[in-house]
Nucleic acid binder design. Structure first.
Lengths: 110, 110
DNA sequence: CTGCATCCAATCCGATACTG
DNA sequence: CAGTATCGGATTGGATGCAG
């Protein structure tokens, strides 16, 4: 989504939305919460529709917001693990509610 | 955000995200929760950065998802009031959490 | 006042190729 | 394996004008 100064509104929710503005970010955070520490490829495989580009980009942005940790192992081939930071963990209640809402309202799975 | 079939993942949160995929929608729902029934112009004034086009578009989409009610008064000039539906109200806990998270994590307001 | 349509710029995002 | 860069088509979203 668009760049957006949180200051344009006094409303707290806008700050949250200015940090996590895309659907991929919520989903990535949720996956890391569900599955714990994960490697790049594991995340990629767990979300089939996401492209390589989107995944790297979104992970990078989440890292910049200090919501996830990136741990790189200096070896060949490279190995990188992602996990929620303490700050990222504070979003878990939100993620759980969103997931529960989805479960309660989505049409019956065929 | 993009069109996205919820079926591409078995994860419930993706359904939620496929319904409310944009930052404006969360914000609009939150405003309706905070302020109750509101007219088009009132909403517009309460969210300065939103454009006329975005507001109508997002309201329409929320209405199509049965998250908000649209009540039109057949008079001139027209008067239209928006409010949360019962389904929309089920999102209130999520909205509150998002707002609280924002309040807790946003940098001190100068 | 509310809503829709149009034009057009800005951006998003997928595909692909290349690096260490 | 993990990440970056580039290209180009698709989509988004702002400004504006018109209509009921």
């Amino acid at each position: 989504m668009k760049k957006w100064s949180p200051e344009t509104s006094t409303c707290s929710i806008t700050y949250t939305l200015s940090i996590i503005s895309s659907k991929w970010k919520w989903l990535l955070l949720y996956k890391l919460f569900q599955n714990g520490v994960q490697r790049y490829g594991e995340i990629k495989r767990s979300i089939p529709p996401i492209t390589h580009k989107m995944l790297s980009q979104q992970l990078k942005e989440l890292e910049e917001e200090s919501l996830i940790n990136r741990k790189e192992y200096p070896q060949v081939p490279p190995k990188v693990e992602y996990s929620l930071t303490t700050k990222g963990e504070t979003l878990i209640p939100v993620l759980e509610l969103m997931s529960q809402w989805g479960a309660a309202h989505k049409p019956a799975v065929k």
